[in-house]
Design a protein around this nucleic acid. Sequence first.
DNA 1: GGGGGAACTTAGCAGCAATTAT
DNA 2: ATAATTGCTGCTAAGTTCCCCC
Length: 685
Amino acid sequence: MGREKDAKEDEKAKHKATKLKRLSDSERAGAGGDNIKKSPNPTKATENMDKRKSHKKVKTPKMENVESSSSISESVKQELQDDAFTAKKKGVKRKRIKDDPKEGTSDSANSPTLKKKKKQRHLEEEGDGVAQTKTSKKRTQKMVKKEEEEQAVSKKSKKTKEEIEEARQLKIKKKEEEEQNRWRWWEEEKYEDGVKWKFLEHKGPYFPPEYQPLPDNVHFYYNGKKVKLSLAAEEVAVFFAQMLDHEYTTKKVFRENFFKDWRKEMTHEERSLIQDLDKCDFGEIHAMHKAKTEARKNMSKEEKQALKEANQKIVDEYGYCLLDHHKERIGNFKIEPPGLFRGRGEHPKQGMLKKRIQPEDVIINCSKECRIPAPPAGHHWKEVRHDNTVTWLVSWTENIQGSNKYIMLNANSKLKGEKDWEKYEVARKLKSRVDDIRYQYLQDLKSKQMVTRQRAVALYFIDKVFKSLKLFLENKQPGDELFDRLNTSVLNKHLSSLMPGLTAKVFRTYNASITLQQQLKELTNKSDNVAEKLLSYNRANRAVAILCNHQRAPPKTFEQSMANLQAKIDARKEQLALAKTELKQAKKEAKTKGSSDPKLQALVERKKAAVKRCEEQLLKLEVQATDREENKQIALGTSKLNYLDPRISVAWCKNMEVPIEKIYNKTQREKFAWAIDMTEADFEF
DNA sequence: GGGGGAACTTAGCAGCAATTAT
DNA sequence: ATAATTGCTGCTAAGTTCCCCC
């Protein structure tokens, strides 16, 4: 489905070098965490903290040397959470305060006390450090156990007991380690305005492999004749050949764009020879590609394993950076490989050549005093800058739209997480203001001022008709005189006057999150079983997805998989019927042959249990079927990941005693670690 | 005041890996 | 053990917001 929008035709102007404030980074590794300030009054801070979170474990993460190569060896221990933090944007200091009254932040209006302590690692051996570590261990173990129990039934029936136990221990250990190493940035003080980091070191981007020329037995033909292409032209020909199975190689625009760009890569001779794409025969190249794919699929276990390990090595080397003494995962550390551009919808630039990026195109951003990433041998970077007001590590300009591409951190990083948290805090603020704002714009609809009226209509649309929002915001269409007195900047100014930080998308976040919360309240019963609760959760999630218009085309295999599921249900029903008859039989026997016979009694019990198990499984399947059917055309992922305050879900899980793993997978749990850690059952959005 | 660019978020899909069925 | 199915991850296009410059 999706956004079939005509992309802008016009080529964007060459981008100019940005004049960025080059804030010098004040930190050097080894300085031992100067960014962690000492609390002026640790005792008091502790008291405040305890008042609020006495029931929570305050763990002191043990920081191993994050990376042996790193110059950072000192570990920093932080504890105590700050319940208020500030965020500043557009020069206005915005205070973000955890203002939930139920969390007892009566002191939120007071200036936040510094609650940071720097400790030497050896202190960990003492007192509270040990206790806390233990508590967290217990917590981890419990969580793992839960998971284990679920899997134990279905899975490993073959493995020996020792193996199972071993795997279990390993899992616990791994989880514990992860927990230990997790940077609990949400318990730290925010940086001053605009500063994103104080120390940043990384390896630079990972470049895609060089082009491998075709083997001698694979040929390209033009007009029936073998033509040996130059390396550059050949590479682009291969891009096209690889896509031959795809529908878009038949599209006129795609073909024309491709051919035009391909010819640019050709030598003079090639260009004068190859004038017509229809006379090109990529058959052998295509066949080779298919064979390669097939071969990859049929690789032996060992080969696959080796490949996996090689990839892991690359991830280990390039996939992480060091940001303010913490090892953080990078989201996309690979430079985008060259290929043929495929925009979404009927994109006018589809088929154009997306060029190979060279180190000379790449800007590196890192600390001044770190090891600067080395460019590939014989190359140099376009630029190395040290701008700690931005979050990217690497950037380059892409040749199709002329826009910038960035390498940034993973969603589980501090930089992303903090921003996410802030987003939801702004949306929560809107909650208390939304009634006023709605009342106001409804009044404004009757205003004598044209501008005001238009603004009111626009606001209404932003609030209620999500889909058209963008359509109305950019008045591009010829007939689109609707908002002739209004533009985005006027509207945004108005929005931020209504509430600091308010922009159009805040409404979306707010509406989504508040809907989830309401729906969850409405749909779930504490007495339901887990499967039913999850159905309710998904339904609530679905309500949001529908609201946000996150539609998808029904999966191609939908009908089939639905039928399969139905077959399973039928099978289970039969099984249940059988189990019931057996139970009756057993009961009867027990009655007639003497109820004192313990063997028969045991049999009855066993049959009873079997019936119960069958019933449960049947219910689970039926619930699953309902869920899937309802989900046919709805994509839940986007709202779950981007619009729903995770704290709502976490609180719900706690209230309903549903393990968090049931609603968030590993990646999601990492992304929302801050919410999972800080949220209590009584959280209200 | 509006055009455009930089930076960052949102979005959906393809392909692969994990899981489950046969 | 293999095949089928499902679920996740990586990828990257596209959208939003802010801010600067003319």
